[in-house]
């Protein structure tokens, strides 16, 4: 199968993730969309690695996974704390700006 198709898939996933971040309000969904974007990037890295015949992209994909795991830990903790104090997971409610 042509590896370029994987790039199209990665672009599609990234777009879905980005659209989710912009459109949705629930923090959990937002978080999942961010993960989706990260994984789209990983897919693109791995595909490029395959296309170019070296391992650089695969190594970076591992790094991304490690960072994403760490981010999940911190991010979920924050979301849980916000939910506990506000009884809502909506990111709009967390805005304290005066307009």
């Amino acid at each position: 199968m042509n590896p370029v198709n994987y790039l199209y898939l990665a672009a599609l996933l990234f777009t879905i993730g980005a659209a989710g971040v912009v459109i949705r309000r629930n923090a959990i969904v937002l978080f999942m969309c961010v993960e989706l974007m990260l994984n789209a990037c990983n897919l693109a890295f791995v595909t490029f690695s395959r296309l170019h015949g070296n391992l650089d992209g695969q190594i970076i994909a591992f790094f991304t996974m490690v960072v994403a795991a760490a981010e999940v830990v911190v991010g979920l903790a924050i979301i849980v704390t916000v939910f506990r104090s506000r009884h809502s997971a909506s990111v709009d409610d967390a805005s304290l700006m005066k307009l």
């Binding site: 912009v22 459109i23 937002l30 990111v91 709009d92 805005s95 304290l96 700006m97 307009l99």
Partner: peptide, 12 residues
């Protein structure tokens, strides 16, 4: 007015 505190605005 640009700084409205909504995460999505910053994302955009």
């Amino acid at each position: 007015k640009l700084q409205n505190g909504y995460a999505r605005t910053y994302a955009v």
